[in-house]
Design a binder for these strands. Structure first.
Length: 958
RNA sequence: GCCGGAAUGGCGGAAUUGGUAUACGCGCACGACUCAAAAUCGUGUUCCUUUUUGGAUUGAGGGUUCGAUUCCCUCUUCCGGCACCA
């Protein structure tokens, strides 16, 4: 008998597949098209690790399954070759980036091929190929034409180690994500792409695609849309105005000062002579601090008064203008109206510098309704001074609007002060005496209240006070019997009280009083002139409308997302195809002169000046202006790594086209990528960038779909066996080539990776797991090889048919839901059961042949080499991978008898065997006759029976 | 702080719409084969008590239900993302 030896069969089939070209996608085929895309790798010097293989294995399984189902599958692969790591690698190893790339790609290619992936290699390319980046440059010029690529003097994130500017997205926790160097700010003239023009489209587009919410939410978060208004504050005694951005115009009556970013252009003119020196030194101290320090929210607030005042356009108050580094020039207008009563940062600032705090919003419980009754009332919080516990009244289980835990509260009687009312309520409802008032806060709440007069709950708007009082709990008076029965007293931890109280408004106001929390939520307006008593959301709209009428405000949407800094001061990237003419400024290189090729040079190290190394290559830099023909200079910055990957999927549709980036008819045929599998870490980088490019191309009529990817899935990270991240420095990286070469082979590795956990779950690698998947493949192998010995029989077996049909159903369903790990589990189960069947009987040859062919087909997408080998061993000539996906017959899966679980009072008490489809009476009869079950029924009455056909019967007895 | 996700045996994990919790695999134990080992095959393996019977159990606590890993509330811990974004 043949032995299972992956080292022998795997390379054999890889060569065979390559020669036969069965994985080639066919343009314009009549079969349904399916584009299965996985992120192309960055060919680093380190080679591939197991995480790469998880992604491609997932893609390969789906591609193979679709192919077997008869789809025209495009499963492409290429290399994202431009970028800093290759340049750094080349410098370190004293080779050219071109050569380093060639070597790394060759290495990657070998590794990919050894895994048996069904890529269509005929469509492969590198982003650093001039044939490819010609079109990256061409697409850049379309952005330039549309005014979406522009130059600006901006403070860029500068990596001092890599000596280059970075995009916002490349900075993680104040460090460059690739090299972990703390990032500095540097003013540089840079190429920018106006991604902010597409901010809303990038959010809306998510509604038309199938992305998991964790990905869509993350993108929405990153874009950070916030709706608000710009409001003008005139400067007192000056013609200048300060425009602030706020999302809470409703709190304008509480705006007691203005804060500008230290870099704000008005700072110079607003600073009074007496403050000049101090302001200047503050600004210079801000400039020297690092970005990491400045963004530290734990740090104490700093700032400086400018000496000037602004006029609050509604209160007409003169309010001081300060500068502080907690205001960022890059967001909104770089200026805010500070509302310390309702913003935590402003509160900290006001407390530190003794600035006034004005409350304008009060908490609300429930919802404002039309039938409200205004009422004065108090809430009394009784605290035990020794334990610091707080007393709550428990009104029983919360049903509808009633019940739950509440503070003590009640109305204010005629002739009584609010404080007296609070004291009286405590005495009446709890009996405690010796009460002392310690703190109070006014509040407004809307909610249901119990009325003694009406003897029922009614809806009211309460205007009242929250008091904190203490009692030593020693003296206590007898309670009214009626009061006592309504609720029970509960002493709870003071910090937990606000979470237990069911009245939201009370909870908020209590948090402000006891926990010192700033009230930032929506509420009801107070101290706000004619806007008083309005809900804050309504007041917001009204105030903005009124200010707009006076020309003092505009509605405005701001985004956290910034424009994309597109310049890199490095050699190993696409040259930006622009020529700088002294007369015409930046001019596009004519399309017919593309690509602007990277010159081959000896020195490509980054320069100290922040200029690209290309700047020193005189005969490349010096050229003529395409417009006037006079001497001009080439742009020497290159594009970021993310440029080439922003459209690469489109090139797979037509990879060898020299006339255009892709033929329109081919773009139309292939359409959107059907499924894109990639890393979660690209959610706010590549995935967002490429959606932006695609939407732009769609607007220009260059692509047929509004979104590039119809569906996106993110695969989870495989951690090292100890649960930490795999990293070079820890030396815990699992190299797939080592695993394959150790004798387990690619098929067992593919299964181990896939069987480990759901594909999207981060999970530790288990070095032992591969022994299990290898064992499974061996069992499958042996089963098929033994076929000759078992095929002599003549008996038809329902059991055999049931096992295999059930597995076809399960594996097919799991593939659609991408539950690969459970699909493999059911393949294992199937093989285990076929072993048992084989041991019992010699079944009919045709049935065995069918069973084995079916299980081999089901296994083929997961383990393609052994699948192909066994398929041929079973006497087939064509490849299993184009052999057609098996169907199943439901009638074999249904059985004539089934096991019914019997529960008595919710507990499992036994099982009975009944015919399939038996009715309740029959099952009940069988169940009660069973001695194991009947003993739980003795002397009791069955009061209820719940029957779930073919599954379970539940008896309720008393 | 905000937004997402998760918590199930010794370990990775499974469980359609609420319906027999722990599939499958690893590990471990015992047995067969073997001079022996490996490999392979077979049996067992949530915990407690235990001859059986039984009881407990899906991070903790509560709720809804005949019945909850699944739904609701509260809390804890962990992971990912964002964060002085006005």
């Amino acid at each position: 008998m043949k032995r299972y030896n992956p080292k022998q069969i795997e390379p054999k089939w890889q060569r065979q597949w390559h020669a036969s070209g069965i994985y080639r996608a066919i343009d314009f085929s009549d079969k349904p098209k399916y584009v299965m895309l996985t992120e192309f790798p960055y060919p680093s010097g380190a080679g591939m690790h197991i995480g790469h293989m998880r992604e491609y294995t997932i893609g390969d399984i789906i591609a193979r399954h679709r192919r077997m189902q008869g789809d025209n599958v495009l499963f492409p692969m290429g290399y994202d070759a431009f970028g800093l790591p290759t340049e750094n690698f080349a410098i370190k190893n004293k080779v050219s980036p071109q050569q380093a790339t060639e070597e790394n790609v060759a290495n990657f290619q070998t590794q990919l091929e050894s895994m048996g992936f069904s890529f269509d290699w005929s469509r492969s390319f590198k982003t650093s190929d001039p044939d490819y980046y010609k079109w990256t440059q061409w697409l850049f010029l379309r952005f330039f034409e549309a005014g979406l690529a522009y130059r600006a003097e901006v403070a860029v994130n500068w990596c001092p180690f890599c000596k280059t500017g970075l995009a916002n997205e490349e900075v993680v926790n104040g460090r460059h994500e690739r090299c972990d160097t703390p990032v500095e700010k540097k003013m540089l003239n840079q190429w920018m792409l106006k991604i902010t023009d597409y901010a809303d489209r990038l959010i809306e587009g998510l509604n038309s695609v199938d992305y998991p919410s964790r990905i869509a939410d993350q993108q929405v978060n990153w874009i950070g849309r916030s709706k608000g208004a710009e409001i003008d504050f005139p400067v007192a005694g000056s013609k200048a105005t300060i425009t602030v951005f706020t999302t809470r115009p409703d709190t304008i009556y509480g705006a007691t000062f203005i804060v500008l970013a230290p870099e704000h252009p008005l700072v110079e003119t607003l600073t009074k002579p007496a403050q000049k020196e101090r302001v200047r030194s503050y600004i210079s101290s801000v400039q020297t601090e690092s970005e990491i320090d400045r963004q530290d929210t734990e740090r104490e607030k700093t700032g400086m008064f400018t000496g000037s005042y602004a006029i609050n356009p509604l209160t007409k108050d003169k309010i001081p203008i300060w500068i502080a580094d907690y205001i960022l020039m890059g967001y909104g207008t770089g200026a805010i109206m500070a509302v310390p009563a309702h913003d935590e940062r402003d509160r900290q600032f006001a407390e530190k510098f003794n600035l006034p705090i004005q409350y304008v919003v009060e908490p609300v419980g429930g919802k404002v309704q039309g039938d409200e009754i205004e009422k004065d009332a108090v809430v009394a919080v009784l605290k035990d001074p020794t334990t610091q516990d707080v007393l709550l009244l428990d009104w029983g289980p919360r049903r509808d609007r009633y019940g739950g835990m509440l503070f003590i509260g009640g109305g204010i009687n005629r002739g009584e002060t609010a404080a007296e009312a609070a004291e009286r309520e405590i005495k009446e409802e709890t009996g405690y005496l010796d009460i002392k008032l310690t703190a109070s806060l006014p509040y407004t709440v809307h909610n249901y209240y119990y009325s003694n007069v009406k003897q029922k709950n009614y809806y009211a708007r309460i205007r009242g006070y929250l008091f904190e009082l203490t009692s030593n709990r020693r003296a206590r008076q007898r309670l009214d019997k009626d009061e006592q029965d309504k609720f029970t007293l509960k002493w709870v931890d003071q910090y937990r009280a606000s979470r237990l109280v069911v009245d939201e408004g009370h909870a908020h106001i209590y948090d402000a009083l006891v926990n010192g929390k700033v009230f930032v939520d929506e509420g009801v307006m107070v101290n706000s002139g004619k806007y008083d008593k309005l809900p804050s959301s309504a007041a917001r709209e009204k105030i903005v409308a009124d200010l707009i009428k006076q020309g003092l405000a505009r509605e405005k949407v701001n985004y956290r997302l910034r424009d994309w800094i597109f310049s890199r001061q490095h050699y190993w990237g696409e040259p930006i195809p622009i020529i700088h003419c002294p007369k015409h400024g930046p001019v596009a290189v004519p399309d017919d002169q593309l690509p602007v090729e990277l010159p081959i040079v000896e020195h490509y190290e980054p320069t100290k000046t922040g200029e690209s190394p290309l700047a020193s290559i005189e005969d490349w830099v010096n050229t003529t202006c395409p417009v006037c023909g006079l001497p001009a200079k080439r742009e020497t910055d290159t594009m970021p790594n993310w440029a080439g990957s922003s459209w690469y999927y489109l090139r797979y549709f037509d990879p060898h086209n020299n006339e255009r980036f892709a033929e329109r008819s081919k773009l139309d045929y292939w359409g959107a990528v059907d499924l894109y599998v990639g890393g979660m870490e690209h959610t706010t980088l590549h995935l967002l960038y490429s959606r932006f490019w695609h939407q732009f191309l769609y607007d220009r009529g260059l692509v047929p779909t509004a979104e590039p990817y119809a569906a996106r899935r993110g695969q989870g990270i495989i951690l090292a066996a100890d649960g930490t991240k795999m990293s070079k420095s820890k030396g815990n990286i699992v190299n797939p080539t080592d695993v394959i070469d150790s004798g387990y082979g690619a098929d067992a590795l593919r299964l181990a990776i896939t069987f480990l956990a759901p594909y999207d779950q981060t999970t530790p690698w288990s070095p032992e797991a591969i022994a299990g998947t290898f064992r499974f493949l061996q069992r499958l192998w042996t089963l098929v090889q033994h076929y000759g010995e078992t095929s002599g029989g003549t008996i038809d077996s329902d059991e055999l048919m049931k096992i295999v049909n059930r597995t076809v159903k399960k594996v097919s369903a799991d593939l659609l839901s991408m539950s690969f790990n459970t699909a493999i589990a059911s393949l294992m189960e199937c093989v285990n059961e076929l072993y048992k069947v084989k041991a019992v009987d010699n079944y009919a040859a045709t049935q065995w042949q069918w069973a084995l062919e079916t299980i081999v087909k089901l296994t083929a997408p997961f383990a393609p080499h052994i699948g192909e080998e066994l398929w041929h061993d079973l006497g087939n000539d064509e490849s299993v991978h184009v052999s057609g996906w098996p169907g199943y017959d439901e009638s074999y899966i249904q059985t004539s008898e089934c096991v019914i679980a019997v529960q008595v009072n919710g507990k499992l008490r036994g099982q009975v065997m009944v015919g399939s489809g038996a009715d309740q009476a029959e099952v009940l009869k069988t169940a009660t006759a069973d001695s194991k079950i009947s003993r739980y029924l003795d002397g009791r009455n069955i009061v209820k029976v719940i029957y779930v056909p073919n599954k379970l019967i539940s008896l309720v007895v008393r």
